[in-house]
Design a protein around this nucleic acid. Sequence first.
RNA 1: ACGCCUGUAGCUCAGCAGGAUAGAGCGAUGGAUUCCUAAUCCAUAGGUCGCCGGUUCGAAUCCGGCCAGGCGUACCA
Length: 652
Amino acid sequence: MERKHRTMIELKNILKERILQILGPKYPISMHDLDISYPPDIQMGDLALSFPFKLAKTLKQSPRTIAQQMAPLLCSLEHIHKVEIAGGGYINLFLSRDRFFLNQLEKSEETSLSADETKVIVEHTSINPNKAAHIGHLRNSCLGDTLVRCQQYKGEQVEVQNYIDDTGVQVADVVFGFLEIEKKNLKEIQKIKGRFDHYCWDLYTQTTRFLRDNPEAQDRKADILKNIELGKKPESDVALYVSRQILKAHLRTMKRLGVSYDLLACESDIIILKFWESAFNLLKDKNAAYFVDSGKHKGCWVIKLEGKAEQEKILVRSNHTVTYVGKDIAYQLWKFGLLDADFFYEPFIQQNSQTVWITSSHKTHHKKDFGKASRVYNVIDARQAYPQQVVTQGLKSLKFKEQAEKSVHFSYEMVALSPKSLQELGYNVSEEEQDKDFLEVSGRKGLGIKADDLMDRLEQKALNEVEQRNSDWPAPKKAQTATDIACGALRYFMLKFARNSIIVFDFEDVLSFEGETGPYLQYTLVRINSIFNKLGIKKHAEKESLRSDILSQSLSLNSLPANEQDDYWDLVLHGSQLDEEVLHSTRTLEFLHLAKYTFNLCQKFNAYYHKYSVIQEKDEKIRNLRILIIGYIYNILQKALDLMGIPQPKQM
RNA sequence: ACGCCUGUAGCUCAGCAGGAUAGAGCGAUGGAUUCCUAAUCCAUAGGUCGCCGGUUCGAAUCCGGCCAGGCGUACCA
């Protein structure tokens, strides 16, 4: 009986099983050898088998000879209409094109992926709530949000958390600035007009400078930090106000990118609810943490790093305060449901139709079930690899082996600034800095590009482009389209690089809407939309009914002109690989695969679009086939853009 | 000093669980607008895959060494 495949992944699995059945009894071949890849050129075949190379040694025959013996046996494979030997010993398979395409069209709404976990937590964004978000934070959120979308697409239940360090040193700095430099009380702070996060951006820089020039003020700052932790007024009230205001600003910024969260987990609640005490008890019980009574760490509680002789990391300082890593171990334990402590929750804001929850230290009437994940991703930049390793070590030392393995530091490199872009921003670049390839973004120094400023600039540029092309549109439509394009441009930009590639920020690159960019992808979708519009089809239901009309007729790609057949087939084949790319991206945590796949699909489509007209085509069979392929690509493209969080304007 | 990462076209980057002729965008040059929107498409030029050695039928990809750059190794986060 014929087995239907929903996607290329499934077809490959079906083929692998069958090949193993056929060749297994005669040759020493395993599932592992049976990797099915793609030939470099569609003329050479649709799928490629390279296992003859792997068998050459054991069989003491040339790969080509082996391929020649095997090829005839594979001719009977379902879905395959031709087998060829190529190169030094490849076996290339040609699919039955009509059958494959019809199968794809029938099953286009399904995926072949499935969940592996009971619950996945992704923590991302986690910006210190003391200043405006900058481009480095945007990279974090774009990567994190794409991970979330891909995991959901795969079928996982995903919970998105954003960690709010509302009692940390950075918040204390700004509180110091307000109280000691500006001499403002809470009421006066509340009266500040304009973008509060941008105000604090400057104040933070000013404070850093002040503290550098006035070392004696450090005592007062330490005092502030302590009072924030202890909940003493007025410092703690100011800290709370500042951190909540900035948090709201961050959420607004991220909303512009289509990024949202399920839970905002606050460090202040971790402290009040004594998460650390619970974790500390566990660590002490199992001798995972121990007290040091001599040497440079005298008086501290530390944890040992596995495999690294003499390496220990401080969890509790000699003044009895807990380090960030210590609190993070407690938080990580809680995420896995391993801690004998829990938060309370209350709604923080409504975003679209979704409630964003925040932790609370007071009992509330809301019954929520956050945490208890079976896998956790922490989206944190590469410079924090070491503390992240300590967090995982905490789990390991407590013998939570499985959880340690499923604690993933989703690491990515920073966004840096070129000396050139710094000059564009009006900074004085020193000679020493001039010679560097890039300079690190520094919130402390105020060195960086604020996320909102960049978004504003992108939107302005997009608006100019929209004006040029569609001057007759109503203003709100122009504005919305510009917003969509700006978001698409930024999100694609953040995804197109490998994680461990440092992005040296350049305005020209980000502001580009041509070539390998988000707007290129959006434009491709707009073009397809436009064809449907001209065909008089605007609604999804109309598209579906046209599709089923066409599908009810007997169709064959052979009806297409000879030169078109391969171009058409190339689109079909490429389009079928979305799930494979999502899986690949999710496994490697490299979403550039998905990005580049989508870009590639658009390139192929745009070339096709240019060569073959749908509306002008007189031959009904050909026209129908073209309608099918553009609808097919449209669906795939929509899914791909959704996964990357790239908005889909109807026109542009 | 140790640990991790990076070095591929003029520039920015893919490709690295070994596999067919090393790709894309930008930039450069030359073309396409009786058009389903040129935010597009087509063509041309451009490479010692940092260097040396090793493993292999086969190395940009794996291993070792060297060179260059970055990041990290806080009682910061």
